[in-house]
Design a protein around this nucleic acid. Structure first.
Lengths: 243, 243
DNA sequence: GCATGCAAAATTGTTAACAATCCTGTTGTC
DNA sequence: GACAACAGGATTGTTAACAATTTTGCATGC
């Protein structure tokens, strides 16, 4: 995931490898909803935009599709993913299964140095929040979970969770309630407290509560935004075919 | 993963999509060690072998690399992955974290129908074992774990575990002890028993034990095969530079 | 004899053109 | 007026050629 500091200014900074830069830019655009869910991604347009060949765009598509951030339809092209409500619920369920274990592991291997490391991250989260930098806050919030995964020392889990967090970001971007009450930074405080208790059960329980809370703040019962619901827009129920 | 029935005869059967067939064939070759760890995979050779263009081989490479079954080195090419001992340990650790959760979920949602479904799979495992079909036994053994994941109803977990199982297969192919004592089919019996107990803690504990047992049957302490250890081969310790 | 440098071969990375497929708007028919 | 067939344009899928890079073999010099 993008570093919070680099928010919105990749192009200017030193270009790493063009391939990774393109992936990152498209990623950011999707998570920012500059590319809306369902939007068609035309290869040649993107190729011209980034000044590369279609082949590279194609390779980037494969990566994004693997992370479930776009859908690849044979002979039709690529479309920004539109996670359904069921998918969203599954992602949170999967994260709980994994991050419960993460929390357990971190809790039993907690040290002062690690607690300080987490605390330092929390400070940055609070700072972003007080600055009112909503975007940085969201990114840092994701990185908090990634930090915990990293503390388990298991790269496999870390990489998988990274993808899951990206997917979660897209889900949040799609389903977040109109007035975004982002109170997760205080929940992270609670999580740190639970982690430093040293009790794996307490830590896992707190993690489950936190992930459920994020999920429950979303509007996962409403008809999916993006697919226009004319019936509700015009305040009438769909008729069969009569004029 | 390949169905056990199709063992060794993909080419003859009805061709699905060529892209998937190529992925499957390369996958099988790697897990069979017909393609040995570390082996260079030349694009044009493979393209000619499969009668497709290099572009398709390239796309297949991206898939295999994403699953950590090959390594992609810029300007150098693709190489069959050589999981290190540390990686192997990490994969088993990751599987334990995830499959503990799987076992828990399956245990609390166990029904007679599901138990019968698992039992039916176990019968096939035993059958393959008694026939002496080692390859089918290994594949079915992996599919057992996948079946449990599927029973959680969580597609995210199922897909991730599928990849981890493939990686595990490569690890086993690389590190299995010379006299393969494949006794996992009896361990699966124990697992079913634990799962039908309805107690999530018992189920998770049995799963952990099983995964640790698989890991411990491997030769993860020896110097990695494939990288020739001249010192041990010639029975002397490496000198600095003297003649 | 061994290391260094160079040149040729092999291989990957990239581009552009061509073929196949799908979407869209139009026309014709009932 | 609605529906089906059709043609044109747009877009994806594929192939082949070209450029850049790495590897390999050989010759040269110490």
């Amino acid at each position: 995931m993008a570093k919070a500091e680099e928010t919105g200014s990749y192009k200017g900074s030193g270009k790493l490898r063009p391939e990774e830069m393109i992936y990152q830019e498209m990623l950011d655009a999707i998570l920012d909803r500059r590319l809306e869910p369902g939007m068609k991604l035309v290869e040649e347009d993107l190729a011209k935009t980034f000044g590369v060949s279609r082949a590279r765009i194609r390779a980037t598509f494969l990566q994004l599709a693997h992370d479930k951030l776009i859908n690849l339809v044979p002979n039709r092209g690529a479309f920004v993913a539109e996670p359904t409500i069921d998918e969203a619920i599954e992602v949170f369920s999967a994260r709980r299964m994994i991050e419960d274990g993460v929390a357990r592991k971190v809790a039993v291997s907690m040290t002062d140095a690690r607690a300080a490391q987490i605390k330092s991250h929390l400070d940055r989260e609070h700072d972003a929040h007080h600055r009112g930098d909503h975007r940085a806050a969201i990114i840092l919030s994701g990185e908090f979970h990634l930090l915990l995964a990293r503390l388990t020392g298991n790269l496999v889990i870390e990489e998988f969770l990274e993808r899951l967090i990206l997917r979660t970001s897209l889900i949040i971007a799609m389903y977040e309630s109109p007035q975004p009450v982002d109170c997760s930074h205080t929940e992270h405080d609670d999580l740190l407290k639970a982690l430093t208790s040293g009790d794996p059960d307490i830590a896992a329980a707190e993690m489950s509560r936190h992930l459920d809370a994020i999920r429950d703040r979303l509007q996962l019962q409403r008809p999916k935004p993006g697919k226009t619901d004319f019936a509700s827009i015009f305040g009438r129920t769909p008729k069969s075919a009569a004029s």
